[in-house]
Design a protein around this nucleic acid. Structure first.
Lengths: 165, 165
DNA sequence: TTGGAATGTCAACAACACTGACTTAATATC
DNA sequence: GATATTAAGTCAGTGTTGTTGACATTCCAA
């Protein structure tokens, strides 16, 4: 079965294993978003609102442009989402002091409340999965995901990660 | 909170760790879909077409209903995609022999060609990530993803996985 | 000071998901 | 054999989220 140079078994790199990894990502991502999606559906919001709220909470005072880079969408697309969030009083937009072109984004009190509700739901599932899988599996999970990111995304991820500790 | 026999702290279950896991999923999924998305954008196709093609290739002769359950979308949504794929000669729909109500789906030759192109691109990234991370990390990756799925999705995943070996 | 770059907003359009109502054909059930 | 159910497909309408294009404002540097 495995005859690789050095007797090294590279069976985990077969097309079949890769395909299983691809399908695992597909099915798992559905579970990953399922719980927040249910909550969001009850309001007039979608996944894009969740993402905006998540990262504004994560980096309060971030500019629209910065958020754009993290989310990887066009500014027009983000703007539509931000507009409704601001109109609904979940997000506050403050004109920059040093550069008046920039808008700095913050969650309001009710914005933070919604963020809590959403991330509680998502964390509950992640926690259950982590607990079932155990610490070694979790470490592997993170390693593979990080290797799968585009370099710029990995940079954003690392920056956020390091700012949180 | 939870405490392991031996007083071991479950540091990998802190909110901070969970949040990092959530963000890792978000950024990694972007990378995961980036390469096929680029290819699909050149044609008039989107991610929905890719998913249909993937699972038809994976389980040739599958019925529309079965595909519906795997993809987790409505039949109207799937039908729109299927219609274009059949019209473009990438997918063939054959009336069932035992039950003539059913339609069994197959990729045509050009359908298989496109599937190859798309999955080659996606596998290339997955292979690089797997290689960088190593077999133990890959095992953990799969374990956590599986634990994150909804039970029905896990059933679909397992069924496909076992049929492939 | 003027032209270009950066930042953000508004409008229109496409992809893709959804619900609801319906038709057609084949199969199951009584 | 009449009736109900199932599988597939269609039509119409709606919502979210992505896209381009056009444009206003602000800042900075030649």
């Amino acid at each position: 079965m495995d005859r690789r140079p050095g007797g090294e078994a590279l069976l985990f790199l077969t097309d079949e294993q890769l395909r299983q990894g691809i399908e695992a990502m597909f099915f798992a991502y559905r579970g990953f978003t399922a719980d927040p999606d249910r909550i969001l559906a009850e309001m007039a919001y979608g996944r894009a609102h969740h993402r905006a709220i998540h990262f504004i909470n994560r980096a309060p005072g971030t500019t629209v442009n910065n958020l754009l880079n993290i989310l990887g969408v066009t500014k027009q697309s983000l703007n539509r989402v931000l507009r409704t969030l601001i109109a609904d009083g979940l997000v506050e937009s403050k004109v920059g002091r040093s550069d008046k072109r920039e808008r700095h984004l913050f969650l309001t009190r009710s914005g933070r409340t919604l963020e809590q509700t959403l991330s509680d739901a998502q964390r509950a599932r992640m926690r259950a999965a982590f607990r079932d899988a155990g610490p070694e599996a979790v470490a592997g999970f993170r390693t593979v995901l990080e290797a799968m990111m585009d370099p710029e995304m990995r940079a954003s991820y690392t920056r956020l990660k390091d700012s949180g500790t």
